[in-house]
Nucleic acid binder design. Structure first.
Lengths: 245, 245
DNA sequence: TAGTGGTCTAGACCACCAG
DNA sequence: TGGTGGTCTAGACCACTAT
């Protein structure tokens, strides 16, 4: 609780040093044995830290050679993964404003109930929010939060970060999500909010989010202006295991 | 080379058993110590195998309890990561056809040169291919393959899988890629090929792909019919390290 | 040949979850 | 309280890269 795990603090430290240019792009990190000595730990722990950097696209390990610092390190903002609008806004310098359009009780849509299990209580809180950047409407977020997990959502929370509320205040352990991205025609109500004129097409990101104990608790439909939508990802080539099936 | 690493074959075996229903959704896998005994290995090796399953969204580990088999296991086809059209076509039962529209020498576009380094030789092979599923045009793929890495691309290869050629024949070690997904208006030539009528908007997936030794070798622009585009992802909540910056 | 990362072992202690 | 996964250690051998 009080102190971080060793491998995470090493990963954090190396990440900072790369982002701040202490380890420059194209060069090699110190070897794993050297790093183990530097941080006063075992090689296995250093390796666990380096896995973090590898997954985040900061380094590429080359057998027999070393760990190369990648030039993508400074520019890639992983929007994949589960990241929230508030976190993005904080990390990047966006002049963003959130307007709560709706905050009411509304059951989970039937088509979602089918996916997550019929034996679930569909009672949920519906939150509709408009995201504005530089006075331009960019996104309409629609969240359904299961009452069985999050009994109530204060107005103040809806204006800020749902995840901060759930993680810091409710101590919920958010673990994973399945996401889909599609492009769909939208009805007039949405078009008006996002000022869609030429076409009525919008980018729709749907997320089903689960807690650490595998209970489903949130469905989000995120509707983006197509001309402002950008999804950035760092991907590693999977071999063998993931390819079958 | 001849035999697989132990942890990968364990991961493969567990994956198969989950997909075939030998370990059913919602139940627990045998504990790590039991699995270690079953496979005649150490707990660390079993854990490394379980990391693979976790990343692929097959299980969720719960401290003090065990590894839960997820119900998303059977249905999720991770399209994120680096997967090729040929692999997708093989894994799923699509009636897909590839038509080579162009196969010629063409230098890497200037805007891409800026991103990957000016000191590079822009000489490349340009391949334009139309992907058809059930007699419907779905995707136009445009690949630029650097000649410095892939000197030539036979016509037969262009009709099949570029990655199979590069990995199996040329023994290249494809490692990672940066990807972006955007929605953009397309010119008439593309619109005609994809039969875009109402709007001229298409989904554009751009990839910069790199080898294991961090050399850039491929730029791909993949243009999708918006009404047929679907991106599916399994994401885990990142904490601490990735969030800063 | 010397150094690197990749794999694997056998052990240890901890925090968490259940009965 | 006993079993679970999470972390960490200290060692070992291998395949690969460089010189």
């Amino acid at each position: 609780m009080d102190t971080m795990q060793k491998y995470l603090s090493i990963a954090q430290d190396l990440t900072n040093k790369i982002k701040h240019g202490q380890y420059t792009e194209g060069t090699l990190l110190p070897s794993e044995t050297i790093l183990a000595n530097l941080y006063g730990t075992s090689r296995a722990t250093v390796r666990k830290a380096l896995v973090e950097l590898t997954e985040n696209g900061l380094i590429q390990k080359i057998k027999g050679k070393g760990s190369v610092v990648l030039d993508t390190a400074k520019f890639t903002f992983p929007i994949s993964g589960i990241t929230t609008f508030t976190e993005l806004n904080r990390n990047q310098q966006m002049n963003a404003v959130t307007t709560v359009l709706a905050l009411e009780d509304r059951p989970l849509p039937a088509e979602i109930m089918k996916q997550v299990g019929r034996h679930l209580d569909p009672a949920a809180t519906f939150i509709q929010r408009l995201r504005t950047v530089d006075d331009e409407a960019i996104v309409v977020d629609e969240d359904y939060l299961l009452k069985s997990v999050v009994p109530e959502v204060p107005e103040i929370v809806a204006q800020g970060s749902l995840y901060e509320y759930m993680e810091d205040t409710l101590n919920l352990n958010i673990a994973y999500a399945t996401k889909t991205i599609t492009v769909e025609p939208m009805d007039e109500a949405i078009c008006a909010k996002l000022h869609l004129e030429t076409a009525n097409l919008a980018v729709v990101v749907r997320s089903l989010t689960y807690l650490n104990d595998t209970t489903f608790f949130q469905y989000t439909r995120s509707i983006h202006r197509p001309d402002r939508f950008k999804f950035v990802d760092f991907a590693r080539r999977k071999h063998l295991v993931a390819k079958k099936f």
